[in-house]
Simulated assay, not measured.
Amino acid sequence: MKLAILLCALLLTSPARADWKPIEKIETYTVSGQSAEQLYLSIGEKGPVVGAAGSGRRVIAHTFFKLTWQRDYQSQGSACVLKSARPKLIITYTLPKPAGKLDPALQARWDRFAAGLIAHEKVHGAGIIDMVDRIVAFSTGLTAENDPGCKKVRAELTAYLDQLSRAQRQGSRDFDSKEFGQDGNMLKLIAAFLGGG
């Protein structure tokens, strides 16, 4: 499956995580219905809202992350060295969940649909983890001469974080465009769920 191959490729290109691990959580929102069509309509009504306040749109599933840091800046003479940067990354996947028991045939269709959704969202998660790994690799040992207040190091780090964050968001948008585009995995997944394939 293309999703699995892409996920493996993303994980293999990540620098090794030395002393941190992401925390991954799944949250659900309840959908109702006793047919694939009813469940999918409920997703459209209750799915998570993404985008700016007031102009957001509902999506089937969503990946959100919260990233905080413990950074150890040290002065060495007139230089500043960022000795370590330890992230705390929490990734939350939001997915639909039927409110009640489904008949066995519909449950089987739902299970295939749900597996495809989490596989898609996990690729987004892998991209976030890769970004954090790259930040750790860049940060650790970052040094600036004549920087007693660590302003140069902080400015260089901030510029890199901005660049990497923009690249991660663009990569995520590009992935979604492909997945939801013609012959994309997500369109096929939705069609199979609604069509009973």
Rank of each mutant, 00 (worst) to 15 (best):
K2V: 04
K2W: 13
L3F: 12
L3E: 08
L3I: 05
L6R: 10
C8E: 15
C8Q: 14
L10A: 04
L11R: 15
L11D: 14
A18C: 06
D19Y: 11
D19F: 12
I23V: 10
I23Q: 10
T28I: 00
T28L: 00
Y29C: 01
S32G: 04
S35C: 12
A36Q: 00
A36V: 05
E37A: 08
L41C: 06
S42R: 08
E45K: 15
K46L: 01
G47C: 00
P48I: 01
P48D: 02
V49Y: 04
V50G: 00
G51I: 03
A53R: 15
G54F: 01
G54L: 07
A61W: 02
A61Y: 05
H62E: 09
T63F: 13
T63Y: 14
L67C: 06
T68A: 09
W69V: 01
Q70A: 06
Q70E: 14
R71G: 03
Y73L: 08
S75M: 10
S75K: 11
Q76Y: 06
A79T: 04
C80R: 06
K83I: 04
S84P: 12
I90E: 15
T92L: 02
Y93P: 04
L95G: 06
K97S: 10
K97E: 12
P98M: 14
K101F: 13
L102Q: 05
L102G: 03
D103Y: 12
P104R: 03
P104E: 08
L106M: 11
A108C: 08
R109A: 03
W110E: 07
D111R: 04
R112G: 01
R112C: 06
F113M: 11
A114Y: 01
A114T: 02
G116T: 04
G116W: 07
G116H: 00
G116Q: 00
I118P: 08
E121G: 01
K122C: 02
K122T: 09
V123W: 12
H124K: 09
H124I: 03
G125C: 06
G125V: 00
G127E: 12
G127W: 12
M131W: 14
V132S: 05
D133S: 15
D133Y: 13
R134N: 10
R134E: 07
V136K: 00
F138R: 14
S139M: 02
S139K: 04
S139H: 13
T140V: 01
T140Y: 13
T140M: 00
G141L: 01
G141H: 08
G141T: 04
A144H: 05
A144M: 11
N146A: 14
G149H: 10
K151P: 01
K152E: 10
V153H: 00
R154C: 07
E156M: 13
L157E: 02
L157R: 04
Y160A: 05
D162E: 09
Q163M: 03
Q163V: 00
Q163W: 13
S165L: 01
S165Q: 10
S165T: 12
A167H: 12
G171V: 05
S172T: 10
S172P: 01
R173Q: 07
F175T: 04
E179D: 15
D183I: 01
D183Q: 14
D183M: 10
G184M: 00
L194Y: 10
G195N: 07
